[in-house]
Simulated assay, not measured.
Amino acid sequence: METGMFDLRALKYFVAAYEERSITGAAKRSYIAQPSISAAIQNLESSLGTQLFERAKNGLTPTADGEKLYPRAKALLAESLAILHGFREPPQREMRVRIQDDLPVHRAGPLIAMLYEHLPTMKLKLTQEGEAFDLKLVSESCRLDTEWMQLLWEEDYVVIVPDTHPLRFKTHFELTDLNDAPLIERPYCVLHQMFTQLLIQKNIRPDIRASATREEAVLGLVELGVGISVVPQSHCDGLKNVVIRPISFESDFKRRVGLACAATNIEMIALIGSMTKKLTESYA
């Protein structure tokens, strides 16, 4: 490389290392191997005739020249991107995302926002059961052996009761309280069969008032006063005319949800890894 010359890719890797404060973080963010990041930064330092980072076991610390270069590098990269956009439209990538059937679409909001942050030009396609996918938001119990998964949140199940029903006065439910209770079934829920078997074992027989094929219908029926239902706690956001009560299970009856992809899809695993911290904070 000639003295005083450097490429935009080296600046991009410098910015990633500066913002991540580590070669490892920059490599994950840029989807390339760590040695490529290190080599690019070293070549950049050689071209500029200065050291840009202090390197230590706990990461990188920008030097004074590194601090000086950062805003200029950001501006130059932004300008180069503007030049490209001025002459051609960037290729649009299709991102196929499957949302588990018993998850309200709004629960995927933080994920979708994060995907657009990482892939601004992507075209989002929500796929159905049985269709090909790149990523899926799914319960841990539905992960296949051929899939890799990163958990995002864990939650309890609760009872939702119309605010006009006498059961609204109960502050806490036991399973036995569901005996003869007007229940709305959720047969599409991945834990429905386990829940049903649990009731049978306890000889608990709810009064089944309705059965729905999607979560929005169940929540709507409870709001209308048709009956009660047992749902994941996060599904209660924004409900009207409903009270929410905890319920005790003798076993560990929780829902654990995360992002999954094919275990061989290294690119998607890296993408999930780069989003995990912010996503877990969003879903906390």
Score class of each variant (00 low, 15 high):
Thr146Phe: 08
Thr127Gln: 09
Leu119Cys: 07
Leu111Tyr: 08
Met122Thr: 14
Leu119Val: 15
Glu94His: 08
Lys136Gln: 11
Cys142His: 09
Pro166Ser: 14
Phe133Glu: 10
Pro166His: 12
Ala113Leu: 14
Phe133Ala: 03
Ile112Leu: 14
Lys136Phe: 05
Asp101Val: 11
Ser141Phe: 08
Met114Lys: 09
Tyr157Trp: 01
Leu111Gln: 08
Leu103Met: 14
His106Tyr: 15
Gln100His: 12
Pro104Trp: 06
Val159Gln: 10
Arg96Met: 11
Leu167Ala: 10
Gly109Cys: 06
Trp148Ala: 05
Val159Asn: 10
His118Pro: 01
Ile112Phe: 11
Leu135Phe: 03
Gln100Cys: 07
Val159Thr: 13
Asp134Ser: 10
Gln100Trp: 03
Arg98Gly: 14
Lys123Leu: 14
Asp101Lys: 13
Val158Pro: 11
His165Tyr: 02
Thr146His: 12
Thr127Ala: 09
Arg143Gly: 06
His118Cys: 08
Arg143Trp: 00
Leu135Gln: 05
Gln100Lys: 03
Leu151Asp: 10
Asp145Ile: 01
Val161Met: 04
Thr121Arg: 14
Arg98Lys: 15
Glu147Tyr: 02
Asp145Arg: 06
Lys136Ala: 03
Gln128Glu: 12
Met122Tyr: 06
Leu103Gly: 07
Asp134Phe: 00
Glu155Tyr: 00
Arg96Ala: 07
Glu129Ile: 13
Pro166Asn: 13
Thr121Asp: 15
Ile112Lys: 02
Trp148Ser: 03
Pro110Trp: 01
Ala132Ser: 11
Glu131Lys: 14
Glu155Asp: 12
Gln150Cys: 01
Arg98Ala: 08
His165Gly: 04
Leu137Gly: 06
Ala132Gly: 00
Val105Pro: 01
Glu117Met: 12
Asp145Val: 03
Leu151Gln: 05
Trp148Tyr: 11
Val138Ala: 05
Asp163Thr: 01
Met149Asp: 13
Leu167Tyr: 15
Met114Val: 00
Leu103Glu: 10
Leu152Phe: 06
Val159Cys: 09
Leu115Arg: 08
Leu152Trp: 03
Pro104Met: 09
Phe133Cys: 02
Ser139Phe: 05
Arg143Pro: 00
Trp153Cys: 03
Phe133Lys: 04
Pro166Ala: 13
Gln128Val: 13
Ile99Met: 03
Ser139Lys: 03
Arg96Asp: 11
Ser141Ile: 10
Lys123Tyr: 08
Leu144Ser: 14
Asp101Trp: 00
Glu94Gln: 13
Val97His: 02
Val97Leu: 15
Val97Asn: 07
Thr164Pro: 09
Leu152Cys: 04
Val105His: 13
Gly130Cys: 12
Asp101Gly: 01
Trp148Glu: 09
Ile160Gly: 05
Glu155Thr: 05
Met95Glu: 12
